[in-house]
Each structure stands twice: as C-alpha cells, then as structure tokens.
Design a protein around this nucleic acid. Sequence first.
DNA 1: GACCGTACCAAGCGCTTGCTTGATTACGCT
DNA 2: AGCGTAATCAAGCAAGCGCTTGGTACGGTC
Lengths: 195, 195
Amino acid sequence: MARESGDRRERILASAAALFANKGVAATTVREIADEVGILSGSLYHHFESKEAMVDEIVTSYLDDLRTRYKRVMAADTDPRARLHDLIVASLEVVEAHPHATEIYQNDVNYLTQIERFGYLRNAGKEVQATWLQVLEAGIAQGVIRDDLDPKILYRLMRDAVWLSVRWFKPTAAYPITRLAEECTSLFLDGLSRH
Amino acid sequence: MARESGDRRERILASAAALFANKGVAATTVREIADEVGILSGSLYHHFESKEAMVDEIVTSYLDDLRTRYKRVMAADTDPRARLHDLIVASLEVVEAHPHATEIYQNDVNYLTQIERFGYLRNAGKEVQATWLQVLEAGIAQGVIRDDLDPKILYRLMRDAVWLSVRWFKPTAAYPITRLAEECTSLFLDGLSRH
DNA sequence: GACCGTACCAAGCGCTTGCTTGATTACGCT
DNA sequence: AGCGTAATCAAGCAAGCGCTTGGTACGGTC
C-alpha cells in the first residue's frame, strides 16, 4: 500500500467536484481533472472506473447526508413552524458541507437524469419534495399556515430560493449560515412587508 | 430565394433552444440539432456561423425582451409594493415567452460566462440585480419594507424562486401565470403564516 | 437560355473526448 | 536482497466533436 492511497482518491474527488460544479459535468474533461491533481488522465482509471463513477460518488454521498439530516428533523417532536425552520437549516447545512455537489445537482440534474446510471436522482427529488409537503400540509391542517396558497407551489418557490443560495452565499463570521437560515425563515413565514 | 428561408432559420433556432435547455449547451451536438430539423449538420452552417452564434441569438433576444419589460415597470409612476409585484409579473412573462432561453441562462450561465463571447452575460446579471435593489431600497426608505433583512439577500432569494419556476411551472387555464405572480407576491410580501 | 444566389448534401478534416494498454517505478514486507 | 502490489506514466485507440469543402438542384431574373 502506498503511504497516501486514500488521500489521493479523496483529492481526485475534490478536484473533480470543484470542476464539475464550476464548468458543468459535460464540459469538464478527465484531462482537466488529472491536471489539477498533477497526474496523467490515464492514471485516474486506477482509482475510478469512469468519469460517471466520480460523479456518482460525489452525488450519492451528498444525497445520503441530506436524507440523514431530513430524517432527524422529522423525527423530532416539533410543531410545523419549527419544522419548516429546521428543514431550512438542515438544507443550508448540507449546502455548506457539500457546496460542489449541491451545485452539480442544481445545475446538471436535467443532464444527469437522462443518463441511465443516474435515474435514481428522480426518486431522490420526489423524496425531498414529500418531506417538505408533509410539513406544509400539517401546518395548514393545524391552521398556522395559510390555506389559500398551493403547498406544492410554495415548496418549489422555497426550494429554489434555499438551494440556489449555493451559487451566491459565502458564509462569513459576521453572516454565518445560521443568520441566513433566520432570514429565510422570516421571509417565508412573515413576509417582507412592515406591518 | 427558397420559399421558406426565414422559416427554416427560425425552426433551427427553436430546435436548438429546446435541446440546449433540456440537455445543456455543452452536451448538445450540432448533429442532434440538424437531426431535429431534418437536415445534415453541415447545412446548419449555411444559416449560422457557429453553434455559439445560435446560443448567442437565443440568449440575446431573451435579454433584450427582459430589459424592455423591466424598463417599462420602472418608468411607471407606482409605489414600491406595486413595483415589486410588477417586476415579478414581468419576469414570469419573460419566462413564459422564452422558456428555453430562460432555462439555458439559469443552467449554463456559469459555463457560458467563461467563454469570451458571452462575457456580456455578467453585466446583464448585474443590471437585473440593480433594478430589484432599487425597488427594495426605495421600499425600505419609505418604511413599507422591513429594514431588518439584507436587501441583497432578499433579492437573491426572490430571484431564484421566481426564475427557477421555468423548471416546473406549466401554465394552465385554471392556473395561469398571473395567478402564480399573485402567489409569489403574496408569499414574499405577507409570508405564509396565518396571522 | 445563360446566369446567379439560395439551400442543401456527401464526405471528411483536424482535433478532443473518455478510456485502455503494457511497461515502469515506488515501497512495504519478509 | 528479493518479492509483490499499488500507483503511475507513456502512448495511443475508437468514437465523436465542431466545422469546412466541393458539388448539385432549383427557382427567379435579365
């Protein structure tokens, strides 16, 4: 065993993720990935079966983390308003933990789903939607959320606002993700009107 | 002159736009575009200088339409709350008028901006942001919009929610874009809490 | 009826792509 | 010292890419 075999693999994945996120999966070549790591493109294939396999590993670990966190939120004994806030926090935490994977998913999900191997992405999307809808509908049933707005549309609006923050939000000490989560929650729940 | 020269050009652009939107610009080949129209790939180059030129024409007419509509909103003598509503309506109308171009811009702006030819996309993005910020800041100054939320963050959250509707919203008779615009405005201004 | 411009086809060029192969090196273990 | 394995290189393949070229069919013009 070489002295840093696992390390090398991780560095390849990290470089690939950054390139996939910045340029798109289709527009990133295996030679670019290899260049970033400092090896030849052929050597990548000692560590990974294919370019698709790299994408798969990046996206899978991202979705696994997301599922775990959402389950934890739904397992807690909390009211709909708190749950909505917790879902937003959990999502933003995943964005922070997997910024490149998030961007890959948001930008290239159309392209990826039409590749056989990534068909499972369709189910993953439905799972996430079901979680949010469960919270929204519970809130409507309990009378704490307005019933004159379509929950599915609310979900899509909030979903895109929260997840696409990966494209522009860079947490700082003065403005950490907890603060962004508060502003998101406050915007969605209370609106931006002064009343 | 052939009997439908301009028509052919338009059909090529329409096919290209649909493919670019669904698969991404980089992942779409000129052969696929030609197949959709029913000609050989080489024949495309009688109508267009390059693949980039097709993208350029699609995106440019999209941005021109957007700029025109935003200017009309800002020229009207209205208060910030109405203006915010009108910006949302104008944006959704552009989404409806140029669904493919919208999707191309939202999905591939990262990839495109790193191509010299599309450097102008950076300025276009800034222009749009400036328009929204102008409205938000006027609202804060007049006391109709809360001053405890960062306008730039509000803009980004609303921007993504509104524009990404292109990925999921298909207007119907029962639920036209005017209705979506109302729900968007109501969500952002009043929030989804019952109070 | 010679001429011209438009629209297209058939073929293929130069290049890049993801990936494969066989040889070579680096290194821990006995 | 010698061996086995992991990691890499050097070279290149087949396929596909965007795009170019030379040629042809055809309607309109004078």
